[in-house]
Design a protein around this nucleic acid. Sequence first.
DNA 1: GTTTGAATCAAACGATCGTTTGAGAGTACG
DNA 2: CGTACTCTCAAACGATCGTTTGATTCAAAC
Lengths: 220, 220
Amino acid sequence: MTSAPYASRERSTKERILGAAEALFATHGFAGASLRQVTAAARVNLAAVNYHFGSKDKLIEEVFRRRLDELNSRRLAALGKIANQDETQLEDVLDAYIRPALDLSRTDGGGAAFVRVLARAYAEHNDTLRRFLSDNYGHVLRQFAAEFGRLLPGLAREEIYWRLDIVTGALTYAMADFGIIQRKSDVAERDHREAAADHLIRFAAAGLRNPSVSNSPVTR
Amino acid sequence: MTSAPYASRERSTKERILGAAEALFATHGFAGASLRQVTAAARVNLAAVNYHFGSKDKLIEEVFRRRLDELNSRRLAALGKIANQDETQLEDVLDAYIRPALDLSRTDGGGAAFVRVLARAYAEHNDTLRRFLSDNYGHVLRQFAAEFGRLLPGLAREEIYWRLDIVTGALTYAMADFGIIQRKSDVAERDHREAAADHLIRFAAAGLRNPSVSNSPVTR
DNA sequence: GTTTGAATCAAACGATCGTTTGAGAGTACG
DNA sequence: CGTACTCTCAAACGATCGTTTGATTCAAAC
């Protein structure tokens, strides 16, 4: 009924928990953010987490699933529009890979926080999480590798993966705003991230096109 | 360097704590690794941490200081040998920046673990730790930026920092072994890291040399 | 032999952790 | 009405956390 004792909530309890968890995991890490912090920030009862998600670990997994499903479907959609076409440039594929991550980091609903959560997951080096990411989203990377391979016929498959790995590392680092470059006060955060993505795409394109293949130690 | 294998019993209590803390922080994070785990792994009494270091936070800081001081000086020493010389190549400067991190990750006694700890520190986004790292590394980064600027006269100072930021991100990611590339069983870990550094240097050199700059120049 | 002080130890401190419980509020349907 | 079901709530559970305490060990100094 509309005669609830307190004001009706705009968002459900589950959604408020997910949002608060995302922000706090980004700031304090998975072990560092307690369920008491999460439920206090979400203004829900402590027991609501275990009621709705079962456990803290399941909550963490759900925080990932909610964002990654959308991120990777966007990546695949962008890739589908340009894959196997004659006029496709390397920058287009990089854009399909990087831009959705940038867009995610700009969404109002906590996407920026999630990008830091994602970076943290890499750092955690947790095998369970790695398996979860590999199982659910490994096919995305494989499709991008195939398209990069088509556009870079001079590179072996393994070389493609080495370089994609470097791009992913730089992307993770950049989108999580780890960097040494501090955003100036007169630059909006989205403009800062836009500039970061722009630099990253250009840098990555040059690195990917590099004809120098390493099968011997670096000359000096 | 002077530590022999299986010498843990002869090492001091402080050193055993530092080694065990480094390994456990790398695996479980700063919040995730308890002092009980650390002291059990080091085979010392629980109270030894607070006796020798004062607190867990001070222990964390000491784990960093021990490694960063050496990495710091090695990078500057390598840079000092090639800076401001006519025959210096871009790859030489990148090598001076990247190779000490690789060497650190190959040292016995926990260096590889520390690289993961360092990557985790970036992910933690903790202001205290960032300040600590900035104080220790700020001048190093500035010296490298100056040398890169000399070798890349076509790039603005800010562009140099953008690209160095990307290199640092990829280096952090690669050295911490976050990557999707799984080391094959017949490849030794040091060979795997050597290959990663080799790929990274080539990739970074191509990215740094890229004449294409952002179409939205920043005015100072 | 006595004293001194650093180092180690078992034990316990209070705080906080994730999780569980059981009662109660609210809603829907007969 | 009664019943059933979903959700919320305060409270407490046992476990583990970082830290502290006080006794004990032991080698060097006096």
